[in-house]
């Protein structure tokens, strides 16, 4: 169970980064850390002691596979995470171009 708790701690570290950092790049890094902790947690749930990777090779003896469902979900989630990260970074660099800073509070003060 300690592994699950460590995943939770990693999630909290990412959340701490998102809440307290002022630099937009650091905020994106915090979001990515949160994503990573979630992937880890989902794959940990599907793990079975002594089971094989879910690929039929034709000559395995113990016919028990790791749960393929969380793996398939995480596979899509990883690629979606990359897409959202790229989108966030594009917005960040566009804001930098317009305001000359990555500081998110200064951007708030400058406009509205």
């Amino acid at each position: 169970m300690i592994v699950y708790s460590l995943c939770f701690v990693l999630f909290m570290v990412g959340l701490y980064g998102v809440v307290t950092r002022r630099n937009m790049i650091k905020i994106v890094i915090g979001l990515a850390i949160m994503e990573i902790s979630i992937f880890m947690f989902l794959v940990l749930i599907g793990y079975i002691q002594g089971a094989e990777a879910p690929i039929i090779t034709g000559h395995e003896t113990a016919v028990q596979f790791v749960d393929p469902l969380p793996q398939a979900m995480v596979l899509t989630a990883i690629v979606i995470g990359l897409a959202t990260n790229a989108m966030l970074l594009a917005i960040a660099i566009r804001i930098y171009k317009n305001y000359g800073t990555f500081d998110i509070r200064k951007v708030n003060e400058l406009k509205g």
Binding site: A83, A86, A90, I93, K97
Partner: peptide
């Protein structure tokens, strides 16, 4: 996947060139 990621990458490079 390849085309989407390549589009994002090229867009960043073009942005750097034009700015």
């Amino acid at each position: 996947v390849a085309a989407a990621l390549l589009t994002i990458f090229i867009a960043l490079v073009i942005f750097k060139e034009e700015s």
